[in-house]
Amino acid sequence: MLKQLQVDFYQDVLNPKNAKNYLANGRFTAVDLMHVYHNNYFSNLTSALEKTYSCVLRLVGKKFFNMLAKDFIKKNPFKNRQYD
């Protein structure tokens, strides 16, 4: 049960628009709340990519780099426990 919940949660962090019905009712919608985790995930990994590819960032600018990073992260899910 714990594992299935976490599998569902993982999928919803990646695709918060499809958030499943495992959250208690509160002030905010499930979609809004899962977007917090979705944004954290992409923001953390984009920051790591910015540090690794700092020359590319300077060449293309932050807006375009962020778009590239999001596409890259979607196609290459994180497989490492190292933080930064």
Binding site: L2, Y10, Y37, Y41
Partner: peptide, 24 residues
């Protein structure tokens, strides 16, 4: 928790507060 089935989310995610989760 931050990983499940070999997938990593690079975040500190909340656990459900149940007896199963506490035992784990």
């Amino acid at each position: 928790w931050s990983s499940i089935n070999g997938h990593y989310l690079n975040d500190l995610l909340p656990v459900p507060y149940t007896q199963e989760s506490l035992n784990n």
